[in-house]
């Protein structure tokens, strides 16, 4: 009998430890990024890091300004959101308000496929199909450019926007729909004048999460946007994102422990901060909007 109790206790402890592993992971991420960045910032001032306009740690004339990487990240993300936002929301409204059940059951898994494709595949798609196509429209476009990477990234994150937005639209109480239909509104009017405003916080959550995903995406931009830091928001030019830089250093033969190598931790810290803040904003908004309907 004592044995049974002891066994229960041991099992519970094991389960508890497993759950705690997730907390440890977060602590380890933060600790690694901060402690290693600390080494970096002993050599490079934070002012230089944030205001210098060039990023050339791998050249002989080393400059450590994060702005060009930030610009690369922003322009690819912006293009991606400009694709995913209108398409994702249109899909969400269509699936939640228009589509018959059968169509929805077919389209939803089809959309999920977009999120399941490995990102190297998307990178290849951008570089070998989309960029040559864009060259027809913009003859001056670089072989590696933010536009192509951003467009493809946009396609990849469509399901993220559409599924979360659809959930938000479905959470709108039916009484609101009935009220609008009762006044003689079409589905289109009901959707845009009543449902989208009512579900706005949920839709915003989906967009923020999509932005966060686009900022952190690595392989597509490393393959198709280039590996050349460039302080520009022109999507036709070659850029380098924070993530692509981390990959570039990892692939190179920069000696571990050198200041050039430590750059990936400073860059990683920036990246982590952005996504962390965005994720928490979305989490906060989600909690708030769930309360509203409960």
């Amino acid at each position: 009998m004592l044995k049974v109790r002891l066994k229960e206790k041991i099992i519970e402890s094991g389960l508890w430890l497993s759950a705690m592993a997730t907390i440890l992971t977060t602590i380890a991420i933060i600790w690694v990024l901060i402690s290693q960045s600390f080494v970096f910032f002993q050599h490079v001032s934070i002012i230089e890091f944030l205001t210098e306009t060039e990023w050339t740690p791998l050249f002989s004339n080393k400059k450590y300004g994060i702005l060009p990487l930030l610009a690369g990240t922003i322009s690819t993300t912006l293009v991606a959101i400009l694709v995913a936002l209108p398409l994702g929301i249109t899909i969400a409204i269509y699936l939640s308000e228009y589509a018959p059940k059968l169509v929805r059951n077919l389209f939803k898994p089809a959309l999920e496929i977009l999120a399941a494709v490995p990102t190297v595949v998307y990178g290849f798609f951008a570089l070998t199909v989309v960029t040559p196509f864009l060259k027809n429209i913009f003859p001056g476009i670089s072989t590696f450019n933010a536009l192509s990477a951003g467009l493809v990234m946009g396609i990849m994150i469509i399901p993220m926007v559409s599924s979360l937005s659809e959930d938000a639209l479905r959470a709108v109480p039916n009484s609101l729909r009935e009220a609008a239909f009762g006044m003689g509104s079409t589905k289109f009017q009901t959707s845009f004048q009543v449902l989208v405003p009512a579900a706005s916080s949920g839709i915003i959550v989906s967009v923020i999460l999509a932005i966060s995903r686009a900022i952190g995406e690595t392989m597509i931009v490393a393959i198709a946007a280039g590996q050349q830091p460039n302080l520009t928001l022109n999507p036709l030019e070659t850029v380098e994102t924070i993530t692509a830089f981390i990959v570039q250093v990892s692939l190179g033969d920069v000696p571990h422990g050198s200041i050039e190598y430590q750059t990936i931790f400073a860059a990683g810290l920036m990246l982590f901060l952005f996504t962390f803040v965005l994720n928490n904003i979305s989490h906060y908004l989600k909690e708030k909007f769930q309360e509203k309907y409960e």
């Binding site: 997730t22 690694v32 900022i215 952190g216 981390i246 990683g268 990246l271 994720n279």
Partner: peptide, 25 residues
């Protein structure tokens, strides 16, 4: 509560950051 929020957060951490974590640890 902390565990739940933490797991949501971990799901949103970019994969390349996990690489940096793995590299150090």
């Amino acid at each position: 509560r902390i565990l739940e929020i933490n797991i949501t957060n971990l799901a949103g951490v970019p994969s390349v950051i996990y690489g940096i974590l793995g590299l150090e640890i």
